[in-house]
């Protein structure tokens, strides 16, 4: 499948991409309190890039995400695993949740903790594995 020869699609996807990317991050972060989370977030991010790949071809989509999806896979897994380490170092045990909170003007208190770090790893792995498969199937 090559890029569809459609200016409209290209333009739309170019506009849609940042929206979907932002949306996916929101879904990731709110997952702890409302339905959502890293998995859904990762899927949304991947679908944004996948649409881009359909419109512009997998080569340009690959350039868009920078390193090869496999690199991102490694990164995501590493994120997931390393979220176990602060707990280990603090002596509470691996994967023990550690939290910090920040007062953000206008948004209130933002709580960040290792579980969110972990969820970010999930997000990256999901997005990267989807893209790895979609790109290759597209090229095939």
């Amino acid at each position: 499948m090559n890029a569809l020869d459609s200016v409209i699609l290209r333009t739309t996807t170019r506009l849609l991409l940042p929206v979907l990317a932002f949306f996916s991050i929101v879904v990731l972060l709110r997952g702890h309190n409302e339905p959502g989370g890293g998995f859904i977030g990762g899927l949304i991010a991947a679908s944004g890039v996948a649409l881009y790949a359909i419109a512009h071809g997998p080569d340009r989509a690959r350039r868009l995400i920078g390193p090869d999806p496999r690199w991102w896979l490694g990164l995501g897994l590493t994120l997931g695993i390393t979220s176990a380490i602060p707990g280990l170092l603090s002596g509470a045990g691996f994967f023990a949740g550690l939290w910090v909170s920040a007062q953000l003007p206008a948004l209130g208190t933002l709580k960040l903790g290792t579980p969110i770090w972990f969820d970010a790893g999930v997000y990256v792995v999901v997005a990267a594995s989807m893209l790895a498969m979609i790109f290759r199937l597209q090229e095939h």
Partner: peptide
Amino acid sequence: LIPLTAAAACAAMWA
């Protein structure tokens, strides 16, 4: 965790 981390590293070093 050791093999899993190493697997992640291997995936990242795919080339």
